[in-house]
Nucleic acid binder design. Structure first.
Length: 433
DNA sequence: TCTGGGGTCCTAGGACCC
DNA sequence: TCTGGGGTCCTAGGACCC
């Protein structure tokens, strides 16, 4: 049996803890640059504000309905999350923190009445942190997510579900018929794992409710869609297919990307931004004790505008895995220069660190260097050519002319007799505009 | 004028090998 | 006349999550 503990309208609730006057008001929290709404109070939802809706589209509600908009304060939300999670952990023996405002709790071995226990944890979270939350209990993760949805919806929209499920919805003591009744009252698009695309296809095919989906044959769902949706169907049927992930795995990719407050055309500010993104990403990388082997940088115009569109990305391989900010920043800037073209109103840029490995694997990877050097060199040359193509032949050069004669010059070890060798990718000179 | 910032997993198709 | 077949790896793109 699983529980899902989920903070209601989490970012808004965090803000309300410190600004009691916001209680009962329609409130939204806005993303970076106040671009769009990333959290909504119940009152804001009732006004029709959608998740991720652009702020400029709902700004008029400030005047007409007293909608309050706040810029996001992620440091605060992270701190509140830590407090909520540590209390939620008391509900059962295992916990998986799934997002900033949600955690699954494994309930195997827990004695007593689960609903009572969940209600106690809920009120403790509310008393100690000020965050209201919903708790769903079910025999699979997907059903516990659904129970959580029912708990929150029953509270927010009276009449949508039986009122006894409000706040804490416990499926553990319900019969299959009772569970089916709840599934029948739930739109298929509200099921965890059914997004907009597949939701539309399902509805078009006559699968309207979660119950319709639960009654499909898993094998034909796998044939018609994918193993992912098949798993969802089985979970709805009560067969647990998704287990707890107790110890969080290190990230496989690390990204830092931003939309700009206003369009950017010149390379100067882009270099500043990309350097900042690369530094932030490098910090996160070191934070999980990993090294990176490839740095991806991208820039793009706004797909929402009618201006000339431009979207490019490039992957810059590092000569050796590292977590060194200056090396990562240099690689990101080199990549940026190879994809930058003047004359476009760029709206967004980002840096992603790909192909991460634990620090301890580094030595092993170095031993493979000989085999990989050809490939790396090919990529290096491509990037080199791209830069020279754009900025003029010879703008970017290898520091020494001995590359062809001495393959190891690209390698890992500094040759003491030839200190002018370019010893690593990171030491490449960077072109000047 | 103004449209987020992270992540994960799966699949199809091509390259390559024997 | 007749032109294999299966396995693996990699990548790009799509779909999903909050």
């Amino acid at each position: 049996m699983f529980a899902l503990v989920d903070g209601n309208n989490f970012f808004v609730s965090c803000e309300r803890v410190f600004r009691r006057s916001l209680e009962g008001q329609p409130v939204v929290v806005l993303s970076n640059n106040d671009g769009c709404c990333i959290a909504r109070s119940n009152e804001a939802k009732a006004l029709g504000v959608k998740m991720a809706q652009p702020w400029h589209e709902v700004r008029c509600l400030e005047e007409s309905d007293g909608l309050v908009a706040l810029s996001a304060n992620f440091a605060l939300y992270g701190d509140m999350s830590d407090r909520m999670m540590s209390i939620a952990a008391g509900l059962g023996p295992t916990q998986e923190i799934y997002s900033i405002d949600e955690s699954f709790i494994g309930l195997d071995g827990v004695r007593g009445d689960l609903r009572e226990r969940a209600l106690a944890v809920r009120s403790r979270i509310l008393d100690w942190t000020g965050i209201p939350c919903g708790i769903g209990i079910g025999p699979t993760k997907t059903l516990s997510k659904l129970a959580n949805h029912i708990g929150k919806t029953a509270e927010r929209k009276p009449g949508s579900y039986p009122p006894e499920h409000a706040q804490v919805c416990d499926m553990s003591k319900l019969s299959r018929d009772q569970i089916d009744a709840l599934l029948g009252a739930t739109a298929v698009g509200d099921v965890w794992g059914v997004g907009r695309r597949i939701g539309t296809q399902l509805v078009d095919g006559g699968v309207i409710t979660a119950l319709d989906l639960a009654r499909l044959d898993p094998a034909s769902v796998k044939r018609g869609w994918s193993v992912v949706l098949e798993r969802t169907v089985r979970e709805l049927q009560g067969v647990s297919c998704i287990g707890m992930e107790d110890s969080p795995e290190p990230k496989k990719e690390i990204a830092c990307t931003r939309s700009f407050g206003r369009p950017v055309e010149e390379i100067g500010p882009l270099i500043e931004a990309v350097s900042e993104f690369a530094s932030r990403a490098a910090e996160k990388l070191r934070g999980q004790g990993s090294h990176v082997r490839e740095v991806l940088v991208f820039i793009r115009t706004s797909p929402f505008r009618k201006d000339a569109q431009y979207s490019r990305s490039t992957i810059v391989p590092l000569r050796r895995p590292c977590s060194d900010t200056s090396a990562i920043v240099r690689a990101a800037i080199l990549g940026l220069r190879s994809i930058y073209r003047p004359g476009f109103k760029l709206a967004k840029a980002g840096v992603m660190l790909l192909d991460l490995a634990p620090e301890s694997r580094e030595q092993f990877e170095l031993d493979l260097g000989e085999a990989e050097s050809e490939r790396d060199r090919g990529r290096l040359m491509q990037a080199l050519d791209a830069v020279n193509d754009r900025w003029g032949r010879g703008v970017l050069k290898v520091a020494s002319g001995k590359v062809g004669a001495a393959p190891r010059a690209w390698g890992m070890k500094q040759d003491r007799k030839s200190p002018d060798y370019t010893t690593s990718w990171e030491d490449m000179p960077v072109a000047r505009a």
